[in-house]
């Protein structure tokens, strides 16, 4: 098991490197790319940073300082080397330390991801279970309709509708006053509850369907028939069903959370939550390569770590799975 984890971590490292390299290349190769230098012209970033009507010496100076005059592979190597030492560079725009910038934004994203995930679990799992147990009932049909609508509503649309309704019409919510949970819990909650709901709708619909589907599948398993044949009370039989039906939900949950921790771009953008997603969006619009790389790096690490954790947890839930 330990060997397995170590092997996975080593592979994770390779994966993260690959992701970073791809992003790096994209921003060099694409037209208008940050570090792109064509036929002796100055790099766009340096020009931008030098301000209005820059003197060529200043541009050159900036290029040298940022290493933009070096070949791509040297720049990449230097970036990786520094990254390994915990230095992700400084933002081209605001000059702040990238690592700090990401850490600074993490609580907002984490609040959004965890909060929303609790909401969708609280909605999705119970409805899925009841729906499966009362199959073909009115409730089942109703919740399946909800699920269908839920998965079909795009977050950006739902988010805007929600803001329009709750902020403009009812005035029970106002966009953009995010406060961290440690500073002002009440304010934090006041700004987060609507994004949670909006983000959770699609997931909840999806989880409802998954839980219901799993339950129905497990219900027809031979071992559930055995459980009934030995005279277990219906409550215990349902426990047997849940044990099998909810295990895959753990996997799903872990992966979804991992992805969201890398930034829920659309939701953060709509509700103006200063999280990693928003940081990345802003960085992209201003060609701020260090920030882009930094957020990508974190997002990749979250996904890969979540994958690993999920696999390890799964092994402890399903005795048939053993890693070596």
């Amino acid at each position: 098991m330990l060997q397995y984890v170590i092997r996975r971590l080593l592979w994770s490292f390779v994966m993260v490197m690959l992701v970073v390299m791809v992003v790096f290349l994209i921003f060099f190769v694409l037209p208008g790319g940050t570090g792109r230098k064509e036929d002796g012209r100055a790099s766009p970033v340096a020009v931008m940073m030098a301000g209005r009507n820059p003197r060529p010496e200043l541009v050159k100076n900036i290029e040298e300082r940022l290493g933009l005059d070096r070949p791509v592979y040297v720049q990449f190597g230097r970036y990786v080397w520094n990254a390994l030492h915990g230095d992700l560079g400084y933002s081209y725009q605001s000059q702040i330390d990238v690592r700090e910038a990401v850490f600074h934004r993490l609580p907002a994203t984490a609040s959004l991801a965890f909060g929303a995930s609790i909401v969708w679990l609280l909605i999705g799992i119970p409805i899925g279970i009841i729906s499966a147990l009362k199959r073909r009932s009115l409730l089942d049909r109703g919740s399946m309709l909800f699920a269908l609508i839920g998965v079909s509503m795009p977050t950006f649309w739902l988010g805007l509708i929600a803001i329009f309704y709750f902020d403009s019409n009812l005035n029970v919510y106002s966009v953009g006053d995010y406060a961290s949970i440690t500073d002002n819990p009440a304010q934090w909650f006041a700004t987060m509850w609507l994004p949670w709901l909006v983000l959770a709708v699609t997931f909840a619909a999806f989880y409802t369907r998954m839980v219901r589907g799993n339950m129905l599948e497990v219900q027809s398993e031979d071992y559930i028939r055995t459980a009934r044949a030995k005279g277990l009370k219906e409550r215990s039989v349902i426990r047997h069903i849940l044990r099998s039906a909810l295990t895959p939900v753990v996997t799903m949950y872990g992966l979804d959370l991992g992805i969201l921790l890398g930034g829920a771009i659309i939701t953060e953008r709509i509700f103006n939550i200063p999280g990693i997603g928003l940081l990345a969006v802003d960085a992209i619009s201003s060609s701020d390569l260090p920030i882009i790389l930094g957020t990508t790096l974190f997002a990749a690490m979250f996904v890969i770590l979540a994958n690993l954790i999920v696999d390890v947890v799964y092994a402890s839930l399903d005795p048939r799975v053993r890693y070596s």
Binding site: R225, T226, A227, R228, A229, G231, L232, L317
Partner: peptide, 24 residues
């Protein structure tokens, strides 16, 4: 019926591979 099942009347099935709960 439940009180009879497994107590006075028991059943075994065809496929022993799928008849026991894999997680217990």
């Amino acid at each position: 019926l439940r009180k009879i099942r497994g107590k006075e009347m028991a059943m075994i099935f065809q496929d022993p591979f799928s008849c026991l709960h894999p997680f217990y």
